[in-house]
């Protein structure tokens, strides 16, 4: 992939996830072709590109959510802090505790707000007692900037919240398992502009503690929240660089066409 320009100095330091030669097939469809990416710690990395370019597919490889799709086949290497996540010894359950995920549509469970957030800590046995669990729930909701809005109605169902609140609840739910990486698959696409702004602010906030990977169809959003941006097109990783470089001086003509609105 000679059109891919990776800053070599970046590779050696602080890489949370290193992907090399990742290919994904859905049945006969070659959805992702030979992708190399490095995700750095404490930074927001954005994946952009037109619909069906493979950005979500790649995101779902990072915590093996593609395993739930029967026809998907992943090859190549993805290392999380040097450990191959597709190693047969790896249990995806343990992996996903470290690499959390937030989805496109807010999907709170049909449980109370408290139980939604406590779900992850409970299944992973993170709290020794009720007090610890309460603390995790509170800190997670605070971390997701939702505590003040819901602290008086923790026992009400999570589905009763507004769209933006639901998405922040899902973020709080993902944060509660204290992951190392947080994957976000178009987290704002189902939200109105005000809720979007709140979530974007939250993402910026989260960057101080995790590496965040966000898939977005909005270039403005990528420019606002991310430090690094990868541009995908037709299953190829076309360009991966610092966000401001991608948007100001793209190296690849396809990237330029996309950000100037000619393809996409």
């Amino acid at each position: 992939m000679n059109d891919m320009r990776v800053d070599q100095t970046m590779m050696t330091t602080d890489n949370k996830i290193t992907a090399r030669g990742v290919q994904v097939h859905y049945g006969t469809n070659h959805a992702l072709k030979d992708v190399d990416v490095d995700i750095r710690d404490k930074m927001v990395t954005a994946f952009i590109g037109p619909s069906g370019c493979g950005k979500s597919t790649f995101l779902r490889c990072l915590n093996r959510m593609n395993d739930t799709v029967a026809s998907a086949r992943v090859t190549g290497k993805i290392l999380l802090e040097g450990e191959d996540i597709y190693d047969p010894k790896v249990d995806p359950v343990q992996l996903r505790a470290k690499v959390g995920m937030v989805f496109q549509k807010p999907n709170p469970f049909p449980k109370s707000i408290y139980d939604n957030v406590a779900y992850g800590p409970r299944i992973h046995g993170m709290a020794g007692n009720k007090a610890e669990l309460d603390e995790i729930v509170e800190t997670s909701l605070r971390g997701a900037a939702l505590w003040n809005e819901v602290k008086d109605r923790l026992t009400e169902p999570g589905t009763g919240l507004s769209g933006g609140q639901q998405q922040r609840l899902c973020i709080a739910r993902a944060v509660a398992t204290s992951p190392e990486v947080l994957l976000m698959d178009e987290p704002c696409s189902a939200l109105d502009p005000i809720a979007t702004a709140q979530v974007e602010e939250l993402i910026d906030d989260l960057r101080s503690r995790f590496s965040v990977v966000i898939v977005t169809h909005s270039m403005q959003q990528a420019a606002r929240v991310s430090q690094k941006t990868a541009f995908f097109h037709l299953g190829n990783l076309v360009e991966f660089n610092d966000t401001d470089k991608i948007f100001t001086s793209p190296q690849d003509p396809r990237t330029e066409s996309y950000i100037s609105g000619r393809i996409g």
């Binding site: 739930t68 995806p92 996903r96 505790a97 995920m101 989805f103 709170p108 469970f109 779900y119 398992t177």
Partner: peptide, 26 residues
């Protein structure tokens, strides 16, 4: 909805935990 299962699996729940605690209550 599948999104409900994804949410649970994405948090690192096993399939049976997802079924027992998310799918069946729903």
């Amino acid at each position: 909805p599948q999104s409900m299962r994804d949410g649970s699996l994405g948090l690192g729940a096993t399939k049976s935990e997802t079924i027992r605690q998310v799918v069946l209550p729903a």
